[in-house]
């Protein structure tokens, strides 16, 4: 049982060596390569997934930021529009006020002028009338007293105006 047999030792070595060479070529190399490939694939897939996730997160963050920005901008626009409309309205109101005032002033001054003109015309007409009245009186050779009374009476009506 324990006796040494160099023949068996050599046969074992030959068998083992042959098996090593054969298996190395036909089994270990393809299998180990397949395992490495698969592990590489898995590692790459995980890395790719990780990267895609990071990218998605980045896009999401970007989206959120741009949405926030848009919202802010919209708010600002609304605010600006409101301010503008307020300004326009107040401007319009004040302008209308000013216009109305000016129109009023103009109307007043026109009325004043017309009145002045009318008075001046009236004075002219009165003087003419007075002259005509004097001629009439003279033509009709009225007495002094009557004449005087007539003129005074006429003048007094004039002054009332």
């Amino acid at each position: 049982m324990l006796q040494l047999n160099p023949g068996v030792i050599i046969w074992t070595a030959i068998t083992f060596g042959l098996l090593l060479v054969l298996l190395r070529a036909t089994a270990w190399k393809p299998i180990l390569k397949a395992l490495d490939d698969r592990e590489g694939n898995i590692r790459k897939s995980i890395e790719r997934a990780e990267e895609a996730k990071r990218e998605a997160e980045r896009l999401l963050e970007e989206n959120r930021k741009s949405r926030n920005e848009a919202e802010e901008r919209a708010q600002q626009l609304i605010r600006e529009a409101k301010e503008l409309s307020e300004k326009v309205r107040s401007e319009a109101v004040s302008k209308a006020q000013v216009d109305a005032n000016r129109l009023l002033d103009k109307a007043r001054s026109e009325i004043e002028r017309d009145k002045q003109q009318a008075l001046e015309q009236l004075h002219g007409v009165v003087a003419e009338l007075a002259v005509k009245a004097a001629e009439k009186i003279l033509k009709e050779s009225m007495d002094n007293a009557k004449q005087k009374k007539l003129v005074e009476g006429f003048l007094s009506t004039m002054e009332k105006n």
């Binding site: 049982m1 324990l2 047999n5 160099p6 068996v8 030792i9 074992t12 070595a13 083992f16």
Partner: peptide, 11 residues
Amino acid sequence: NINVTASLAII
């Protein structure tokens, strides 16, 4: 067989 294991051990 001790010869077989001896061979493996020598390798």
